[in-house]
């Protein structure tokens, strides 16, 4: 068996101290295999955002072990964490988080610029990624000239352009209409088929229905871990689309 992409053991996160203490995560253990498509569900206040920040190496847990692609995150300093985020993780945010006044192409190129990829190589890969999300005709547009769905597709292109071990999506469809939601989820399904490991955080059952595995979080603890499709199989909604 290969090394899991994500491996969490007894992760806790405590905010504040004394009376103001909030225990956002109370011992979460989780392992995600390569190629899996996991939806983490929970109501607001369940700790899913905290978990997302820890998974994305944006925050450090109060206690517990966290390995990503075999690397112990707890032992890394800030500079190495930045490199890790750059190489291993691709983010898709609820509010798109594209950089304003930069073209779609420049936004997609950005992580490679920080990763030290040469200019020509970078351009080719960014164009390929934009083609993959169906935006070849919008590369010169700036975020404010794109619709919400298009912006989110640019964000997906930016997340996958570095070929990260993990694609982390935080409520990716939260700000989108139904049609755009279908577009984005279709793209994620396609990425899953091509073998990407995806973790998606959501509170919508419709979105979770696309995942191969659904984890439900309540009060900082996992209360349900349900598999909807095998790790190496197709995403559950995929056959319908093909059919």
């Amino acid at each position: 068996m290969t090394v899991p992409v994500l491996s969490l053991r007894d992760i806790t996160k405590v905010y504040g101290r004394g009376d103001a203490e909030v225990r956002a995560l109370r011992g979460v253990s989780l392992s995600v295999e390569r190629g899996d498509y996991v939806a983490i569900m929970g109501a607001s206040g369940s700790g899913k955002s905290t978990l997302m920040n820890i998974l994305g190496c944006l925050d450090v847990p109060t206690s517990g072990d966290y390995h990503i692609d075999g690397t112990d995150v707890g032992s890394l300093d800030e500079r190495r964490l930045a490199v890790l985020r750059n190489r291993k993780i691709g983010f898709v945010f609820q509010s798109f988080n594209l950089i304003p006044r930069m073209s779609a192409l420049a936004n997609v190129e950005l992580p490679m610029a920080y990763g030290g990829v040469g200019a020509a190589d970078r351009r080719a890969r960014a164009l390929a990624a934009l083609e993959q999300v169906g935006l070849s005709d919008r590369v010169r547009h700036e975020p404010n000239e794109l619709s919400g769905g298009q912006q989110q597709r640019v964000a997906v292109a930016r997340a996958l352009v570095t070929a990260p071990a993990l694609l982390l999506a935080d409520e990716p469809t939260g700000n989108l209409d139904t049609a755009s939601t279908e577009d984005v989820l279709g793209i994620l399904d396609g990425l899953s088929v091509s073998g990407r490991t995806i973790v998606i955080i959501t509170h919508e059952d419709d979105v979770a229905a696309h995942a191969k595995r659904v984890i439900r979080l309540v009060d900082g603890q996992i209360i349900e871990d349900r598999r909807q499709a095998p790790v190496d199989g197709l995403p559950p909604r995929m056959p319908e689309v093909i059919a």
């Binding site: 490199v83 983010f91 950089i99 304003p100």
Partner: peptide
């Protein structure tokens, strides 16, 4: 600030 946050999230080191 938000732009700085995005840049850091996608792997910009402090020095950059």
């Amino acid at each position: 600030t938000r732009e700085i946050g995005i840049r850091k999230a996608i792997g910009a080191p402090r020095s950059a």
